[in-house]
Simulated assay, not measured.
Amino acid sequence: MDHAFAVRKLQEFLSLVGGYLLELDIASADVGAEWPEWPEQLVVQEAIARQIVNAYSPGLGDVEREETEHEASYWYRVRTAAAQALGMASSAEEIAAFLRPVSPSIAADSLHPWVWEPAAPLWAAEARQDAVLAAARTLNRRLQQKLDRHDIGETDLCMQAFDPQDAQSGKLRLRFPGDRATQTWRARQQGAKYFGAGVFLAIRNVAAHEEAVSWSRQDALEHLAALSVLARWIEECTAETASSSPQQ
């Protein structure tokens, strides 16, 4: 529902009906005064207001004119219904937010320091794309340092680092703790392998090669969160050399 439209139309109607009621009050006080006719616009606006009022509270806008009712009494009742609907429309978004189930939130400064520390100053400057790129580049350097691999990086390095195959000379592997004979351990290795590659392909490369991305604050924060997950996995894992690999 377009609450802003409802607020605007109800305010227009209330202003119009308020002016008409003022004229009725003047006519009632002055015996010789000419009784005002309905402004044509008031009739049009009343029809619109009724629909809006009933949209917020079905039946509230169905104000019926009683045969013996004073003209002003009818319009006062119509105005009251419109005012009630205006209150509902004005606070609809706040009420919906209040009634929404409590959900967890991501604290940016609780992301892995390899991610948030390089991103923080750029994020503060509203440079979200640069913040994500800085975090990805720092994470890549951390991965290279941990594996002592500077010949490759990012996607290729993730594919090699988490590969379940034994390490080779000069090509260390990252290994999660746990029983390597289990399907769960192998699933973690394979998952991290493709997740890491995907993070660099789909996030880092876009941030680096697109002149300007249309990421919202939420989009950029979620990208940083993905990088943070990868950073925690890299830190958790042990860098394993060919000589330290267990015999299969």
Score class of each variant (00 low, 15 high):
S103K: 09
P118A: 06
A96F: 02
L60M: 15
L157D: 05
R142M: 09
C158D: 02
L122G: 07
E126P: 06
Q144L: 14
A108G: 12
V102C: 13
A89P: 07
D151G: 15
L133C: 04
A119W: 15
A119R: 13
R137H: 12
T68E: 04
P113Y: 01
S73R: 06
S103W: 00
I106T: 02
Q84Y: 06
S91N: 11
A97T: 08
D130N: 11
A72C: 08
I95K: 14
R65C: 00
A127L: 07
E69A: 01
S103I: 11
V132C: 08
K146Q: 13
E66H: 04
A83Q: 08
A136M: 10
S73K: 01
W116K: 07
A107C: 00
P113M: 07
W75Q: 02
G87N: 07
D109L: 08
S57L: 05
V115Y: 06
V78C: 00
V102W: 12
D130C: 09
E64M: 10
E66F: 03
P118Q: 14
Q145K: 05
E67Y: 08
V78Q: 00
H150T: 14
L147V: 14
E154N: 09
A89M: 08
E66R: 05
H70D: 12
A89Y: 01
S90H: 09
A72D: 09
A81M: 05
P104K: 11
A81H: 00
A81Y: 02
S105K: 06
Q145L: 11
A108I: 15
W114T: 01
S73D: 12
A135V: 07
R65I: 00
V115D: 05
P113Q: 05
M88W: 06
Q144F: 10
F98G: 15
R100K: 11
L86K: 01
A131T: 04
D62L: 00
H150A: 15
Q84H: 15
W75D: 00
R141L: 08
P101Q: 03
W114Q: 02
T155S: 14
L122E: 07
T138F: 14
V63A: 04
A89C: 14
E94H: 12
A135F: 07
T155N: 10
H112G: 08
